[in-house]
Design a protein around this nucleic acid. Sequence first.
DNA 1: CTGATTAAAGCACGATCGTACGAGGATCGC
DNA 2: GCGATCCTCGTACGATCGTGCTTTAATCAG
Lengths: 196, 196
Amino acid sequence: MPKGAQTRRAIVDDAVQVASKVGLNGLTIGQLATHTGMSKSGLFAHFQSKEALQVGVLERTREWFVADVMAPALAAPRGEPRLQVLYERWRNWVDHAFDGGCVLVAAASELDDTPGMVRDSLVRMEFDLHESIATVAAGAVREGHFRADLDVEQLAFELRGIMLAHHHAARLLRDAGAGERADQAFAALLSRARSA
Amino acid sequence: MPKGAQTRRAIVDDAVQVASKVGLNGLTIGQLATHTGMSKSGLFAHFQSKEALQVGVLERTREWFVADVMAPALAAPRGEPRLQVLYERWRNWVDHAFDGGCVLVAAASELDDTPGMVRDSLVRMEFDLHESIATVAAGAVREGHFRADLDVEQLAFELRGIMLAHHHAARLLRDAGAGERADQAFAALLSRARSA
DNA sequence: CTGATTAAAGCACGATCGTACGAGGATCGC
DNA sequence: GCGATCCTCGTACGATCGTGCTTTAATCAG
């Protein structure tokens, strides 16, 4: 790997963790430079704008999510087991991957009224994730694990709600029982998916 | 009402709407002054710090929420009808009260790693809301609308998830069907609360 | 109406923001 | 090992940030 790309990657990795604490908008070239021990201009040269840095953070987070959550899920047996792995990995990832809150959750609120390529990048990711969940659920229907008339889009919507509620309870309210609440909600979601 | 309080109220009202677009951290004394047609220092004099302004925004949002959501709910008959009204008003409020996204949802992600009185203020509000929902649900249990062994805290958790998922789908993904998804999820939640 | 209080503006401050440019040193292909 | 390319830095810019102070104008109590 050429030197430049190597440094850029290291910067973005740091930026992901900083952004998890202060948000994508809270990211600052100066603070990030101090944090990484580089000069402000040296760091800036790797991105030609702050927007590009933010997009880099989102892209990196996506790579990470795919490696830690999606890949293990796809390695699991099709159907309900795959959805189970997806859920477990997802929840675990949200809990442990970041110094602060999940970058994607924070970005979703920060960017909902900020048109531009950063928002576009996030929307694409979130949309893909939604589709992936629906697809996995559809696989479970095909395998006969879930009932045939299951609305897989609805399931994806409600699963997203469980993850968001978990994030909210665990990170803002510091509720130690948030994980168990989420597990219980997910179990109920599965149960409803099996039979009407 | 004395003049000062009147102006302060007008500023905060404006600030709520601005914050709904740019977030609590995105709020800026200068931009807000321009937006309200005041001088920066004249505006600043009403709060002695930016933190106080942010707390003011949260407090005002709470007043608004209580008036538009909680009060009508408490006016409805105890039990399931009251929870139904609470849900409907809440969803409607999230959809129509703000120029941008819900201030509280955005603040939850922005402040989860920012200790201080702004965060404390938000946590208190969110905690109270959670308690209120649980209390309303407990009333429905007492009325015999919901099953006796219902975990009302779990219901409050899952209802929060539905609202967050709705906000996510409607505001970030611009999904026109988000409202219906939320309604469907809430209906399922009620159904599960009635009988195991 | 008048005297005391208060609201708002003007201006200034140090700090930090994102971004630009040019020079020096390191890295790499050959 | 040399020449071209690519990093990284120092420095600088205009703008804007949050927050003081001082002065004028409006409000309010008696």
